[in-house]
Amino acid sequence: MFEYFGLIFGSFALLLLISAFRILREYERGVIFTLGRFYKVKGPGFIIVIPLIQQMVRVDLRTIVMDVPSQDVISRDNVSVKVNAVVYFRVIDPDKAIIQVENFYEATSQLAQTTLRSVLGQHELDEMLAERDKLNIDIQTILDQQTDAWGIKVANVEIKHVDLDESMVRAIAKQAEAERTRRAKIIHAEGEMQASEKLLQAATILAQQPQAIQLRYLQTLTEIAGEKSSTIVFPLPIDIVSNIIKGQATDASS
Rank of each mutant, 00 (worst) to 15 (best):
residue 239 D to Q: 12
residue 7 L to H: 05
residue 12 F to H: 06
residue 106 E to W: 08
residue 166 E to V: 13
residue 226 G to M: 11
residue 144 D to P: 02
residue 121 G to I: 00
residue 20 A to V: 03
residue 253 S to K: 15
residue 78 N to G: 00
residue 171 A to E: 15
residue 133 D to L: 11
residue 243 N to S: 09
residue 11 S to H: 02
residue 73 V to G: 03
residue 243 N to C: 01
residue 147 T to V: 07
residue 52 L to Q: 02
residue 24 L to T: 04
residue 55 Q to D: 05
residue 178 A to K: 14
residue 115 T to N: 00
residue 16 L to K: 14
residue 59 V to M: 04
residue 199 L to H: 05
residue 216 R to S: 15
residue 82 K to Y: 09
residue 51 P to D: 06
residue 164 L to C: 09
residue 118 S to M: 08
residue 17 L to G: 14
residue 245 I to Y: 09
residue 194 Q to L: 15
residue 198 K to T: 07
residue 21 F to L: 13
residue 110 Q to E: 13
residue 22 R to A: 04
residue 79 V to S: 07
residue 173 A to V: 11
residue 153 K to Y: 01
residue 247 G to T: 13
residue 171 A to C: 04
residue 222 T to R: 13
residue 82 K to W: 04
residue 80 S to V: 10
residue 229 S to R: 15
residue 200 L to P: 01
residue 114 T to Q: 07
residue 119 V to D: 01
residue 39 Y to W: 08
residue 95 D to G: 04
residue 132 R to V: 08
residue 210 P to T: 09
residue 32 I to Y: 05
residue 31 V to G: 04
residue 120 L to I: 11
residue 158 E to D: 10
residue 56 M to Q: 04
residue 209 Q to L: 04
residue 34 T to H: 07
residue 150 W to L: 04
residue 18 I to K: 06
residue 116 L to T: 07
residue 174 K to C: 01
residue 32 I to H: 05
residue 108 T to Q: 00
residue 140 Q to G: 02
residue 113 Q to C: 07
residue 247 G to Y: 13
residue 185 K to P: 02
residue 16 L to I: 05
residue 120 L to M: 10
residue 7 L to T: 09
residue 9 F to H: 05
residue 73 V to P: 01
residue 220 T to H: 12
